[in-house]
């Protein structure tokens, strides 16, 4: 059932528990339970809303936070994700490479082996940003070159001085804590695939971003679209101060 799907995203429940009920059957005895699923989502949203209210810093008139730095001025652009892409997290920002910014230590983060790495530096917003913060190196990967040349596939990240569309030669990329997720073509079709320890199978169509997590793809960038069967995403945990 749906709750199982929600729990599965947190690694608590197996995704195969998702119920496959016949559509348009008001006589379905599980009908009242279906309302409970939506209610549970609403309750979760209420919790998140309150959490955000309690943790957000005061805002200046221009929308910047009154915390004395510019990080949050470099908001992600939502429009660059392409048709059908969900909203990216506005807290992801690019800074000038100063590791001392924010409340995270550089050593906390890891580089994903085999992932696409390029020179640059990306950091989450101070205090309440995504947990992505690391200088990264160039790593040749021809399969990503075509995507790099296609502006429509660029992630919605502000480059250079933070102004949307202003790119430096050093292209920022991402790194993340190692949580690996494979998107299955069917909940039961890829059981033969061995996942890394701590990995979780996701269903195709799962957006790259949910309320508390940010998925990044093989290219080392945020996944701001639905994942396709067979794709692998990596989940970066949103950190709290």
């Amino acid at each position: 059932m749906l709750i199982a799907a929600l729990d599965a995203r947190d690694g608590d429940t197996d995704i195969e528990d998702i119920d496959e009920r016949e559509p348009d059957d008001p006589a379905d005895p599980s009908y009242p339970e279906a309302y409970g699923a939506g209610k549970r989502i609403m309750v979760g949203q209420a919790d998140l809303a309150r959490e955000d209210d309690e943790q957000d810093d005061p805002l200046e008139a221009n929308g910047d936070e009154e915390d004395g730095n510019r990080d949050e001025d470099d908001f992600v652009r939502h429009a660059a994700n392409g048709p059908g892409c969900p909203i990216a997290d506005p807290d992801v920002s690019v800074d000038d490479g100063d590791h001392s910014s924010g409340d995270r230590s550089y050593e906390e983060w890891h580089t994903l082996p085999g992932a696409r790495r390029r020179a640059g530096h990306v950091t989450g917003k101070t205090g309440d940003g995504w947990a992505i913060d690391e200088d990264v190196e160039h790593d040749d990967n021809d399969s990503c070159a075509a995507a790099d040349d296609d502006p429509s596939r660029l992630p919605s990240i502000a480059y250079g001085d933070g102004k949307p569309g202003d790119r430096d030669d050093d292209e920022p990329s991402l790194s993340w804590p190692l949580e690996r997720y494979e998107v299955q073509s069917h909940p039961s079709s890829r059981d033969d695939v061995d996942l890394e320890e701590g990995a979780e199978r996701l269903r195709p169509g799962v957006f790259g971003i949910d309320q508390t997590k940010l998925l990044v793809g093989e290219e080392g960038r945020p996944v701001t679209r639905r994942l396709l069967p067979g794709e692998v995403g990596y989940r970066a945990t949103r950190r709290r101060p």
Partner: peptide, 28 residues
Amino acid sequence: RIALLEGLSDADSSPDFMDRARATVWPV
């Protein structure tokens, strides 16, 4: 959220009764 979890990503996928029921809620 439900459509996402149910994999209703294709253009020809339409929400069924259960999907609509799940999304019918009172304000919390």
